[in-house]
Lab assay of single mutants.
Amino acid sequence: RLYEREDHKGLMMELSEDCPSIQDRFHLSEIRSLHVLEGCWVLYELPNYRGRQYLLRPQEYRRCQDWGAMDAKAGSLRRV
């Protein structure tokens, strides 16, 4: 689950498959919190699986710093 605000607030989007462009699919370029329910995912800073990568394991991420990012920029997401 992807959230537009910290602490799992605001608009929530659910994802169960790879997403090459978060902007195209959800009209957002920033994700401020996440909740990974199962499996491991890689969040990429840019669309089409480019830029900085962040490995996400099943857990709650209340803010972008929790997954190691300096800002909430999110371009794509892929399951590993």
Rank of each mutant, 00 (worst) to 15 (best):
E30P: 00
D71L: 06
S16T: 11
D7M: 09
W67Q: 04
M12I: 09
S29P: 10
S21T: 06
M12T: 06
G39Q: 02
L77R: 00
K73P: 05
D71R: 09
L28P: 02
R63V: 10
L55I: 15
R62Q: 12
M70P: 15
D7K: 05
G39R: 02
L37C: 05
L11W: 08
R50K: 14
M70Y: 12
I31N: 01
E14M: 13
G51A: 02
Y44M: 01
D66E: 13
L77W: 05
V36R: 00
E60C: 10
Q59A: 15
D7Y: 12
Y49N: 10
L55D: 07
S16W: 12
E6P: 07
G75W: 00
G68C: 04
Y61H: 01
E6C: 06
L55K: 11
Y54L: 03
N48D: 14
L34D: 05
V36Y: 00
L55P: 15
D24E: 15
E4S: 14
Q53D: 09
Y49R: 01
Q59K: 15
Q65N: 11
A72T: 10
R57W: 10
R50M: 12
M70A: 15
C19G: 03
Y61A: 00
D18F: 00
L37R: 11
Q23K: 14
A72G: 12
R5W: 10
F26N: 04
S21F: 04
R1T: 08
E14P: 09
S76D: 03
D24W: 06
L46D: 07
K73T: 12
L43M: 12
Y54T: 04
E30L: 07
C19M: 03
E6Q: 07
E14Q: 09
G39P: 02
Y54G: 00
W67E: 00
H35M: 10
L34V: 13
E60I: 10
Q59T: 09
E17F: 06
S76P: 03
Y54R: 01
L34S: 01
A72V: 05
Y3Q: 02
L55G: 13
L11K: 14
Q23L: 13
E4F: 08
L55T: 15
C19N: 02
E38R: 10
E45L: 02
P58A: 11
L43Q: 05
C19V: 07
L28M: 14
Q59E: 07
H35V: 15
S21A: 06
L28V: 14
A69T: 07
Y49C: 01
Q59L: 07
Y61E: 04
D7L: 05
R32E: 06
Q53E: 15
K9N: 12
E14L: 10
V36L: 04
C40N: 15
H35L: 11
L2R: 01
E14A: 11
R50S: 14
L56Y: 01
F26T: 10
Y49F: 09
H27Y: 09
G68R: 03
D18S: 11
G39L: 01
G51R: 05
W67L: 00
G10Q: 03
E30N: 12
E30K: 11
S21P: 05
V36F: 01
L55H: 13
H35K: 14
R5D: 10
P58C: 08
A69G: 10
D7C: 09
S16K: 11
R62V: 07
L46Y: 11
K73H: 14
R25C: 08
Y3W: 08
S29N: 14
E14R: 07
G68M: 04
Q65P: 04
C40R: 11
Q23H: 12
R25L: 10
L43S: 02
R52T: 13
K9F: 05
V36A: 03
